[in-house]
Every structure is written in structure tokens, then in C-alpha cells.
């Protein structure tokens, strides 16, 4: 295990605990997204929880580590990809079943309460989850940039 540099982010204790829990938070968010059609939750709440994992990295380990983990460019791409996937599913419903957002893929009623049980709903959840996760993380990154604008002494040089 590499010891994080003390120059950036919060204290060593916070960063060590962050290293332990960030994976579990992300896993929980993914679970909430994937099981959104079976248990409470869904794309939006799971996406917010997954974004919380990356925001934790941003806060505890600093902007540089967050950029290395999940770059701004990748987040912007994921944001657009999520919306486009959701729209593509809606348009597939229009093409295959004749109605915008039609649930075109009817699954076997015997497979109820299993992971692949409700047509396109799990895939819509995945698209929305990706989109919400990326966009909230982007907002956090951009707003942490604001702090450097308003408090320049935090980062470098003389105060205003």
C-alpha cells in the first residue's frame, strides 16, 4: 500500500479511511442501480451514491487524485453517454413497438423478481445512473474550482 503524500487533501487518517470505504460506497451505488426494479432505489438514487464515492475521493485526496481516478473528460463523456443511452432505448421502443418509450422487450412472467425481469427498465436505470453519477461528480469538481477562485490563499500566493 502506497502512503499518500501529505501535501494534498486532508490528513493521513482521513485518506486511509477513504481508501477503505470508497470502493464499498461505489459498490453500494452500483447495487442500488442494478436492483432498482426489485428493491427500493433506482437510477437516480444509485447514481447519487456512486457520485458520493468520487466526491469523497475529491475531498479527501485532493483534486489531482480525483482527476487521476475519474477525469473531467471521462465524466463529461459518461454524462452524455447516459442520456444518449436512455434516449436510444426510448427511440428503440418507437421503432420496435410503435410508441415512444414502449417497453418493447417483454420478458417471461415466470422470471419475475429476478435481475433480468422487466424488459428495458434495468437498462434505463443503468443509463440514468451513469448520467446522474457523472453529472453530480462534474458539478462537485467545478464547484471545488470556485473555491480556489474565491479563496486564492488556500492554493497559492497572497490573499486578495
Amino acid at each position: 500500500m502506497n502512503v499518500p503524500r501529505p501535501s494534498e487533501g486532508m490528513s493521513l487518517i482521513v485518506r486511509t479511511v477513504c481508501g477503505w470505504v470508497k470502493g464499498f460506497i461505489l459498490l453500494y451505488g452500483i447495487y442500488i442501480i442494478l436492483y432498482g426494479h426489485l428493491t427500493p432505489g433506482g437510477g437516480f438514487s444509485g447514481g447519487v451514491i456512486a457520485a458520493a464515492a468520487f466526491v469523497l475521493i475529491l475531498l479527501a485526496e485532493g483534486a489531482r487524485s480525483a482527476e487521476a481516478t475519474f477525469s473531467r473528460q471521462a465524466a463529461a463523456s459518461g454524462d452524455c453517454l447516459g442520456v444518449l443511452a436512455f434516449l436510444a432505448l426510448a427511440l428503440l421502443g418507437l421503432l420496435l413497438a410503435g410508441t415512444f418509450f414502449a417497453n418493447f422487450w417483454t420478458t417471461d412472467p415466470a422470471a419475475r423478481f429476478t435481475l433480468l425481469s422487466s424488459g428495458m427498465i434495468p437498462f434505463c436505470n443503468m443509463g440514468i445512473g451513469l448520467k446522474v453519477c457523472c453529472s453530480l461528480y462534474l458539478v462537485a469538481v467545478v464547484l471545488s474550482g470556485i473555491r480556489q477562485l474565491r479563496f486564492p490563499q488556500d492554493t497559492k500566493g497572497e490573499p486578495r
Partner: peptide, 30 residues
Amino acid sequence: TGAANIVTAVLLDFRAYDTLGEATVLFCAV
């Protein structure tokens, strides 16, 4: 719909237009 969670069934099947609008709002805000 086959979805055990009725909230998700409403959000993504019966009322998917609303969810699309919500996603659009979030996208534009970001």
C-alpha cells in the same frame, strides 16, 4: 411491466416521459 418495485415501474415505464424531462433538466443544469 414485470418490475417488482412499483416506483421504478411508474418512473421508467408508465411515466417515462417525466424521467426523460428530469434527465434533460439535470443535463442542461450541468
